[in-house]
Nucleic acid binder design. Structure first.
Length: 205
DNA sequence: TGATGGATTACA
DNA sequence: GTAATCCATCAA
């Protein structure tokens, strides 16, 4: 191993509170569609009644159903009429909390990722949640996959990171009361971390 | 049944 | 700066 400055590559404890799980995923690997990436940026979303920014804030609906189940499953959502984004369900079952996978560095399978993200420079292959999903070929068909099952088409693999490099800040594109919570986590200095944008006030008239 | 507004990205 | 473009959710 590299040394004691690094977290050990211990088994995931996805059932822990989401604010603990989210930073622990930095440096971990996600593998799907012939591509493996190292996570460099994530965001935490707490569930029912706790987080106005969460899709599950208003409770159980067909879309959020998967979040109310056991941790370690994949929650995919479709947004802006174009894009899919990938999340890991975390926390005790029933809490409906999750971690949005915002960005990563492709460490193997670059060829497959480049085909899916045609024209993008390597650094941008997974720089942003929808780009990440596209590069790995993830969409609604992957909803509910168990990320810890080695036989799954989408897998989360243990990794490590230097805790000193973990930075936090407000979540991207989140409006309202939850906007100020510093629930975005990234590895400082990584070129694959996506740029921060405040919530866009819808263009009116 | 209709309205509304996105946990975004690409491009002018 | 803004178009693209589907659908979950909410109001009635």
């Amino acid at each position: 191993m590299t040394g004691d400055a690094l977290d050990t590559a211990a088994p995931f404890e996805l059932a822990s509170p989401v604010l603990e799980v989210a930073p622990s995923l930095l440096g971990a690997f996600l593998e799907a569609g012939g591509v493996r990436l190292r996570l460099t940026e994530v965001e935490a979303y707490a569930g029912v009644g706790e987080d106005p920014g969460s899709h599950a804030h208003r409770g159980r609906t067909p879309r959020t159903e998967i979040m109310f189940g056991p941790p370690g499953r994949l929650y995919m959502y479709f947004t802006y009429g174009l894009h899919w984004c990938a999340n890991v369900v975390t926390g005790p079952a029933g809490r409906a909390s999750e971690v949005l996978l915002r960005a990563g560095e492709v460490v193997s399978g670059q060829e497959a990722a480049r085909v899916r993200r045609q024209g993008a420079p390597d650094r941008d292959l997974c720089r942003g949640p929808a780009r990440l999903a596209t590069a790995l070929g993830l969409d609604g068909g992957s909803l509910g996959v168990d990320l810890l099952d080695p036989s799954s088409p989408v897998r989360l693999l243990a990794g490590s990171h230097d805790p000193v490099r973990v930075h936090t800040g407000p979540r991207v594109g989140v409006a309202g009361e939850g906007a100020q919570r510093p629930w975005r986590f990234w590895l400082d200095g990584e070129p694959t971390v996506s740029p921060y944008r405040a919530a866009v006030t819808r263009t009116r008239n």
